[in-house]
Design a protein around this nucleic acid. Structure first.
Lengths: 221, 221
DNA sequence: TTGATCAGTTAACGACGGTAAGTTAACACT
DNA sequence: AGTGTTAACTTACCGTCGTTAACTGATCAA
């Protein structure tokens, strides 16, 4: 005997009318877990569909193509990074300390979400969230797909702006400082991700070293 | 009338006996040009074969699989980077100046060889040259496929060692300094490659800024 | 009860990396 | 000159990929 309640609760079987959006979420969960297990390239539409328990074409009822699935995952991840940055922005301390905390948070975030990080920042053919806007300042609609990356970057840049307004003498314009610090931390994260078996120096030392490098070099006292 | 000489000179048509290796080179040339034009993912065995003027399976006479073609291109490219580094090592100047030149050379090299750079450093599924050795020091056979990356890294590290031997006070062990400087420059290159349409600051300023950042921060006077 | 429509399905397309088996051209040797 | 060997290459095919077209069945308002 099957559980009758399964028709309304379990993710198996056909959705009731008007509940298709819950299938969409199931697809995202399945796609994300496959990423973390097998990486981007090995995650196929058919595997995602299998895990959800539907046929492959069913995914196209909820997403235009494979990239749109990825883009939705990117936005989820960026959303969490934005929350993280926001919590740091709210801390009562100097912009320099906030910068330090943001740098460390960024690196640890990347290393804690390898699948998503690779998806967003390291994949040639992946949808590239920031690029979609065409110009950096277009963050008017925070829910527009692909916009959250630009928002996170702007939060980093703001720290340099505040530093400059506080009288600090930056070696470059704030936006350039933000780019350089982001790039340096990104280099650390992507290297550790791409070559996990390489005998790197102590990971903690590398993180501290990179944050020190950028803060001392870009936000001098 | 066809030119009779074409039978022995032109790359078209079947190779003479014993001249198959020239076909191998033609395949590498075609594969490389397709990379630069279309990127890694879009370069297929069939496209390479078309450009060479043979059928797709013919490539498997010279390479075990697609990855082996890529690995051969990696080594070609690393070979040129090693030459570049070697020429800098021979310059009569301070280790700090050599470090600066190596950093700038590395970035410009990456930006000038986008296809190969992505292939070597930014592809999940690509053969990863450094990883093959298992440990950093195994550079005993410079012609072993996949070893050249480790050699180039060792050349960078050597500058920090010389600096320390010259009495400089490094913020980390030389190997850690080498890793951090490489990672920072890699972050710059990979960001510019992955987001070519993003409105970055002036490229020249970013390069100089990143090299300054690493040299001042990791090789202090 | 009907009919519209949502939520799926099956079947198929063209392209992919790769393999098996057959064919043709070039050379060594008698 | 003729012949056998084999390097060099082709055709045909396999299973899988992302994606589309066309169809089916469940659900719910009227």
């Amino acid at each position: 005997m099957v559980n009758v309640a399964a028709q309304t609760v379990a993710p198996l079987g056909r959705k009731r009318r008007g509940e298709g959006h819950t299938r969409r979420d199931e697809i995202l969960v399945a796609a994300k877990s496959l990423f973390l297990e097998e990486g981007y390239g090995a995650t196929t539409i058919r595997k995602i569909a299998d895990r959800v328990g539907v046929s492959a074409p069913a995914l196209y009822l909820y997403f235009k193509d494979k990239d749109e699935i990825m883009l939705a995952l990117c936005d989820q991840t960026f959303g969490r990074l934005i929350e993280l940055f926001h919590s740091i922005e709210c801390i009562e301390c100097s912009p320099r300390d906030r910068l330090r905390q943001m740098g460390e948070a960024y690196v640890r975030f990347g290393l804690a979400h390898v699948g998503e990080y690779r998806l967003i920042f390291m994949e040639e053919q992946a949808p590239e969230p920031v690029r979609h806007t065409g110009h950096r300042g277009d963050i008017s609609d925070p829910e527009k797909p692909g916009i959250k990356g630009a928002i996170a970057f702007a939060m980093l840049e703001r720290q340099f702006i505040e530093l400059e307004q506080g009288g600090a003498k930056l070696p470059h314009p704030p936006v350039t400082c933000a780019e350089l610090s982001w790039m340096a931390c990104h280099g650390l994260v992507s290297a550790l991700i791409n070559e996990p078996d390489f005998p790197w120096s102590d990971r903690q030392a590398l993180i501290q070293g990179m944050v020190d490098l950028t803060v001392r070099g870009l936000a001098p006292t």
